[in-house]
């Protein structure tokens, strides 16, 4: 399955809604979506609610995205993660750098705090 990413502005944050799989082949849709975010945005929320599958190549892409966000002075947050993918972010210790929230409201509240 391919990856599509919708960009949804939400106040001082922007939500990237991810559909399909995230693998090493997802670089173009993920990075293109990130590139569409204005530099003034302080927080980027990744919505994994429609994620089908993510492999280790996809986790590598999240690290690259994290580096780009940190370089731009932006926070990276995540919502919509199943218990399984929460475990994977814990396994890889990405949860120490990406703030995980239960829903959009909680993430946007954290983003504006």
């Amino acid at each position: 399955m391919t990856t599509t990413v919708d960009v949804a502005p939400a106040g001082s944050a922007t939500i990237l809604r991810i559909h399909g799989d995230i693998t090493g082949a997802s670089e173009a849709p993920l990075m293109d979506a990130y590139a569409a975010i204005p530099a003034s945005v302080r927080s980027v929320v990744l919505d994994f609610g429609d994620l089908e599958y993510m492999n280790s190549g996809g986790i590598g892409l999240l690290v690259t995205l994290l580096v780009r966000a940190q370089r731009a002075g932006q926070r990276l947050l995540a919502i919509g993660l199943s218990e399984h993918y929460r475990e994977i972010l814990a396994l890889t210790r990405l949860d120490e750098a990406i703030g995980i929230h239960d829903d959009e409201g909680a993430a946007l509240a954290a983003a504006s705090a």
């Binding site: 690290v63 994290l66 814990a90 396994l91 890889t92 210790r93 990405l94 120490e96 750098a97």
Partner: peptide
């Protein structure tokens, strides 16, 4: 599965410096 402290069934001829440690990826 996530693991807090590593354990192994491997046997080394030198020193096991891994048991009890955590993983550390590019973020760390």
């Amino acid at each position: 599965r996530p693991v807090d402290k590593l354990t192994t069934t491997a046997t080394t001829r030198s020193v096991d410096t891994v048991t009890g440690r955590r993983v550390a990826g590019p973020v760390q």
